[in-house]
Write a protein that binds this DNA or RNA. Structure first.
Lengths: 141, 141
DNA sequence: CATTATGTTTCGACATTCGAATCTTTCTGT
DNA sequence: ACAGAAAGATTCGAATGTCGAAACATAATG
């Protein structure tokens, strides 16, 4: 299956990006969330990464030590800790992740509207199959 | 990006499958290799999983304890240990992984030859982009 | 105002991975 | 044929990442 290889290539990219930044994969996913959603409470990261609150705390610790995020108190709710990306994180984003999006967009230009519709439909169909099968597997247990 | 969601759905399926079998993700990937390639030497698993020889030994230990694989000596080279899937592994494969392939094939039937060509081209293009970008990221370090 | 709920952190334990050292078996050069 | 090097897997100790439970601080509720 060609999808398998695509999956592996995603994996390889993530690994390269993590190595480049001196982070592990979990930290990278966390950074991705923080970059995408602006300042987020720690609990939000916990659910996004499907990680226990305890593990989430240490992930944020590591990213903070690496100067990729900063913690700050939520003015509206002082129990909360807001995690925000630093400039270093944003420059890493610009250097590593933005070009992927650009290259992807560029690569898509060779397809006409009809082709793009087929591709999009395929992606959704494939996702539907995966989710359905995941549900089936979960159901038996 | 829709690709992102597809990726996540793959992830969710893998997680469900691992939970169903009481294995962790690494063990599952190892089992996948063993099922796909027949009896394989431990070193082969090591490179396929990008794991150290030491870690590979413990992965095989766990799978053996779970009755999913068996070790046997390679008659042609007694340094080697051949890892083979058990019947339990094959029945897990039939129950969990085979239906995914079937559902996928079924879902693809709605596309004509031209559409399939577009889809295949897209998958290869996307993989090319990812690999190229991974190489770029690796190059800077 | 006492109680409960929410959000995060700390602590101790467990699982996974690695590097280095070890052991056995095979290959190589003489 | 044989000593030394190489290949393949394992063991050992250390480092890392994750979790559950308990603790802590703050907010909401009756």
């Amino acid at each position: 299956m060609e999808l398998r290889r695509l999956q592996q290539s995603f994996d390889a990219f993530d690994e390269a990006a993590a190595a480049r930044l001196g982070l592990n994969r979990t930290d990278l996913r966390c950074l991705d969330v923080v970059l995408a959603e602006g300042p987020v409470p720690a609990g939000r990261i916990s659910v996004a990464l499907k990680l226990s609150p305890a593990a989430t705390t240490t992930v944020i610790d590591r990213l903070e030590r690496a100067s990729m995020v900063v913690r700050s108190a939520d003015p509206g709710n002082r129990r909360r800790v807001l995690v925000a990306a630093t400039d270093a994180a944003r420059s890493a984003e610009a250097e590593i992740f933005v070009p992927v999006g650009q290259a992807g967009a560029q690569a898509l230009r060779k397809y006409g509207p009809d082709d793009l519709a087929v591709i999009l439909d395929f992606l959704r169909t494939a996702r539907g199959v995966q989710e359905e099968q995941a549900a089936r597997v979960r159901a038996v247990s």
